[in-house]
Simulated scan of single mutants.
Amino acid sequence: MAPRTEHGHGAPSPLVDRFGRVHTDLRVSLTDRCNLRCTYCMPAEGLDWLPKAEVLTDDEIVRLVRIAVDRLGIRTVRLTGGEPLLRRGLPGLIARLTALGPELSLTTNGIGLARTAAELRAAGLQRVNVSLDTLRPERYAEITRRDRIADVFAGMAAAKAAGLAPVKINAVPVRGVNDDEILDLVEFAAEHGYRMRFIESMPLDAQGAWNRDAMVTADELLEILGRRWELVPVGRHGNAPAEEWRIDGTRTVVGVIASVTRPFCGGCDRVRLTADGQLRNCLFATEESDLRALLRGGADDAAVESAWRNTVARKGPGHSINSADFVRPERPMSAIGG
C-alpha cells in the first residue's frame, strides 16, 4: 500500500478501490440488538446477541470515525443497527461524532423516536430513515411480532417536528404480504410530508428463507405506481442507492432501491463497520477486517488507516446475487447494519 499523501489544506487522499470507486460514505452499526422480530429478518426468539465486551465502545467508534473523516475522506456517516436507538447514551455519542464534521444520519424502526428525536437533533443528527412496511396495525403486528405501530407514527411526527428532515420511510414490499399497500404508503408519505422509498428484498435474513419469487421488483413497483400517477424521472443523486421519480404536478418524490434487479455496484461509495468493529467493503462481503483488534492491540492511527485502505482495495466489482456463484454472507442484515 502506497503511503498516504496529503493534498491542499491537509485534505486526505481518497479512499479508492481497484476499480476507481471513491468511498465517502460510512455506515456504522451501533448494536446488533433489535426490539422487533420482523419475520423477514430474524426468528421470533431473536438471535444470539453480541456480548457487551465485543461491542465497540463510544471512544472506539469516535476514534474510527475520526480516522475515517480526517485520513480517509469520509464525508457522510449513517448510524444503523440492529436498532440504534437501543444504544445507551446515543445523544452524547452523536454530539461527539458531529464535532468531527461528517453529515450524520440514522436508520431506525422509529419506535423510540418520539422520546428522543428532539434530543438527537440538538446533538447534531441531521436526518432519519424509518423502516415501515405497512400502515395497518394488525399487519404490522404480524410482520414485526410486536404491536408498536402507534409508536412509529408518533416517532416520525416527532422527527419531522424536530427538524430531522426529510423523514424518509423505507418499505420492503413482499408479494402476498404487503404489496397491496404500495399506493397507500406513497399517499401516506405525501400527506405527512415524508419521503417514500421502496427497497427490493435481499437475501440477508437470518433464517435463509429469502425467496426471489416473493420479491417485488423495481419494474413491478413502477408499473403499480404508473397506474395511478404519471412519474417524472428525477434520477439518482450522486452515488445514492435510490433512483427517484416525482409524481407529475406535485412535489412528491418516490425512491426505489433496486439492489437485486438493477445493481448500482459500479457507483458504490459505501463501506461498513459492524457493531463489533469489523470492517466490510460490501454489504454482501464474505470476509471482514478486524479493526477492533487493532484498536485494542495498541495500533496507531496510521496502522488502522492502512488496514482500512487495504480492505477497500480488495473490494470486488459487485455482488453476485444474480449469479450461480452467489454466496450469502454469514452475518444477517441485523448484524451487518443497513
Rank of each mutant, 00 (worst) to 15 (best):
L164F: 13
P166N: 12
P166Y: 10
V167D: 00
V167T: 04
A171H: 13
V174M: 15
N178P: 11
N178L: 03
L185M: 15
L185K: 02
E187M: 13
F188D: 04
F188E: 06
A189K: 12
A190C: 07
E191L: 15
E191S: 15
E191R: 15
H192D: 11
H192K: 15
G193R: 10
Y194E: 08
Y194G: 06
F198P: 01
P203V: 06
P203F: 08
P203K: 12
D205Y: 06
G208W: 09
G208V: 10
N211S: 14
D213C: 00
L221P: 14
L221N: 14
L222E: 15
E223G: 06
E223R: 13
I224C: 09
I224E: 14
W229V: 10
L231H: 04
G235Y: 07
R236G: 11
H237K: 14
G238T: 11
G238Q: 11
A240N: 12
P241T: 05
P241K: 02
P241F: 01
A242Q: 11
E243L: 04
R246D: 06
I247A: 12
R251D: 15
R251M: 08
V254Q: 07
V254H: 05
G255S: 12
V256R: 07
S259Q: 00
V260A: 13
V260P: 12
T261F: 04
T261R: 06
F264Y: 03
F264I: 01
C265R: 11
G266V: 00
G266Q: 10
T274P: 03
A275M: 06
A275P: 08
G277R: 08
R280T: 01
N281K: 00
C282Y: 10
L283R: 05
F284D: 05
F284I: 00
A285L: 03
E288H: 03
S289G: 00
D290W: 03
D290A: 02
L291C: 07
R292M: 02
A293I: 00
